[in-house]
Amino acid sequence: MTATIDRPRTGAPLPTKPGRPPRRPVDRLRDVLTSPKSGPVLVTAVLFVAVFIVGGVRYNGFFSGQVLLNLFVDNSYLIVLAVGMTFVILTGGIDLSVGAVVALSTMIAASLLQTGWSPGIVIPLILVLTSVLGLLVGLMIHVFKVQPFIATLAAMFLARGLCYVISKDSISITEPTFVALAVTRIPLGGGLSITPSVVIALAVVIVAVWVLGFTRFGRTVYAIGGSEQSGMLMGLPVARTKVIVYVVSGFCSGLAGVLFSFYTLSGYPLTAVGTELDAIAAVVIGGTLLTGGYGFVLGSVLGVLVLGVIQTIITFEGTLSSWWTKIFIGALLLVFIILQKVLTARRR
């Protein structure tokens, strides 16, 4: 009986639980590392630094600013693709069409520039066309309840087929503006330089970070990935958002295609085969959960850099053949997916 009397009344401050030590920094670090939200990103960051240091110790001339910057120069289009893919995967969807859309964009650019169109018209036209393709895919997924996998597969076939309709051969780009954008190096001092494509890619990253973190649309994207049903019940514009993420992905693929045509100065129907896998791998390695809801754009950028640094090491090694890249990417994917699995399982 006395026990009931001693019990604090409602409203009274609860006594702090005895026997629980104050949270030490070690605990906090463990919490951050094992959270499904930030854990994989941090692991990726550590991995990137570690791989870069290993490369620097092993190879002469690896440990330079330019090698680091070249990761951005060589992968600027992949960064843009991974940003678009992050939006889609955050909602729990997937976009298999990005590689084919990149190829289609290079083909449109190359063929229109060849017939004398001005780049000021060609580039906006490409971005509009690829966004419209994304819109159609989004509508197919939302209105007709077609699975994202199948709808984007159809878009992939369509884009790849249209490449061949334009031309089955490689078309080179000789248009002065494109050539200028391809060869211009922006000096950063100390002999380091980047290309205009890197600036564009980083601008896309910044905009994406802002949109996902600080706008209603971005928060709705996370909400849909967490639970579409709850999002709907909360009155969030689920339908609109789900369609728009595919438009974003379409736009990013078009932009990535333009950057890719700066990089290669040609259009070829068979370019970027399998790039969708690289983009998905970068997003997953960057810590975005494939079921949606968790993930960061900056993580995806880190994922692209990890893929890039592996590629660079294989180039520096010289004796390793290019197919090892695929095996390494596969192995990394496996490790990160199991990591995600373990981290999310602990939270339940």
Partner: peptide
């Protein structure tokens, strides 16, 4: 692991293994 991802691993690495 979700099937689409589990098999994506082998899809990516498998071609590398075949080339090996």
């Amino acid at each position: 692991i979700q099937p689409i991802i589990a098999t994506l691993i082998l899809m990516t690495a498998g071609r590398g293994v075949a080339m090996l």
